[in-house]
Amino acid sequence: MSLIKQDDRITVDTFLEGIWRENPVFVMMLGMCPVLAVTNSAVNALAMGLATAFVLVASSLLVSLFRNLIPSEVRIATYIVIISTFVTIVDYTMQALSQEVYNALGAFIQLIVVNCIILGRAEACASRNKPLKSMVNAAGMGLGFTLALLCLGVVREILGSGSLFGLPLFGEQFQPWVVMVLPPGGFLVLGGWLLFFEWLKTRKQSLAEGVTHG
């Protein structure tokens, strides 16, 4: 344990930082593989986001409960075993709930194990904080991840198949922009979102400078 006293208070920020300021996808660029691979429709994106959020919250709780028992030399291995246990649970649950979504997500459900967000949270937050705080933080991160996946899934589904959550949006004569649901679309849409956020940031900075100088 570190000598610096940990801040045990749970603030709104504990929850909100995962959604905006430290959004795992748009700011920290973690867990990119599922972000690009399963967001070809909004439903898939939502299912993947919720599955990851569940694993994130559950493993944060367990890691946090055992944080004083796990020897630091084997901590990464222990975290991975904990995480893969929950992923196995999610895998079987998903298969029982909806075979269709399970087939669409394919191996990416099992690949949640190697999602760096989860291991990153276990290492950076859950291993140092009390269970409740880690869970709140993990829930924020999970929600932030789900929102980011939805951002991509919605854009790609609207452009690529002209529908949203499976409901057609445009008339008969709509020509879908097929490349958006194919692999290149994932890279391009995420690149576009990042450009947009970067532009917002630069704009905010230049506005702030304008105020101080003016």
Binding site: G186, F187, L190, L194, E198
Partner: peptide, 13 residues
């Protein structure tokens, strides 16, 4: 604006 990750992603695309 295009420096950093956004550019790499578009290249990847």
């Amino acid at each position: 604006v295009t420096q950093g990750a956004a550019l790499s992603l578009i290249l990847g695309g």
